[in-house]
């Protein structure tokens, strides 16, 4: 019980750190590089965004740094939920719902199943070398600043975003017109994968 609490505290602390970092980064570092960097009082919507983003990143950090796979799973759940919330800010309502249904309803449940089924025999290890925590931090230190630099410094050809509007009808139209071929190929992929997964996992079938 005690360990659980100390773990939770550690997590809360990590989440706080990430939130502080994000807040600092976005309020102090960003404005220097952005043309319209005047101090604007944050709106409620923005605050909700920061909360969601912090939850997402904290969840992802949990996946990356937790030693217990069940905690990783919960971290993934938080990250996926946070991402779904972010989609709403991008006026991608259908995407947010698909994320909830497919990712959290499907993929995460699958992963939880696998964790529950395989946890008892310890870990199913891949027989390759893995970097330790230090190596992981090194990778993070190498990749994250580079990508942040790109995100902040590149003069993205931004144009004024349209008003928030439901996109479902539009996406339906596009699926059956512009993106018809990927739509159909996706069904082939799903068929082939489902058959493949069944072939892999089923018990031996006798010919007779």
């Amino acid at each position: 019980m005690n360990r659980t609490f100390s773990k939770l505290a550690l997590w809360a602390f990590l989440a706080l750190l990430v939130a502080l970092f994000l807040g600092y980064f976005i309020t102090r570092v960003l404005p220097d590089y952005l043309p319209a960097g005047r101090a604007v009082p944050p709106r409620l919507g923005d605050l909700v965004f920061y909360a969601c983003a912090a939850a997402t990143v904290a969840g992802a950090a949990g996946v990356a740094f937790s030693r217990n796979i069940v905690w990783s799973c919960i971290g993934l759940l938080i990250a996926l939920l946070g991402t779904a919330a972010l989609y709403v800010f991008l006026s991608a309502d259908f995407l947010a719902v698909a994320q909830l249904l497919v990712y959290i309803g499907g993929v995460l449940v699958l992963i939880l199943f696998a964790v529950m089924l395989t946890n008892r025999i310890g870990e199913v290890n891949v027989s390759n070398q893995s970097l330790g925590l230090g190596g992981g931090l090194a990778v993070f230190a190498a990749v994250a600043p580079l990508l942040m630099l790109v995100a902040v410094l590149v003069p993205w050809p931004v144009r004024p975003p349209g008003p928030m509007a439901p996109t479902t009808a539009r996406i339906g139209d596009e699926f059956l017109s512009t993106w018809l071929l990927p739509f159909e190929v996706a069904s082939v992929v799903l068929l082939a994968t489902l058959v493949g997964a069944v072939v892999m996992a089923r018990k031996e079938l006798k010919a007779d």
Binding site: P182, V185, T193, A197
Partner: peptide, 28 residues
């Protein structure tokens, strides 16, 4: 599809179609 894809999404899908079926057949 890999040889003829001219859209990022099609490239990704074609690669995934080849890969995912290959995963299964490797463990056949």
């Amino acid at each position: 599809l890999m040889a003829s894809a001219t859209n990022l999404l099609m490239i990704y899908m074609a690669i995934e179609l080849v890969s995912m079926v290959s995963y299964v057949l490797v463990g056949y």
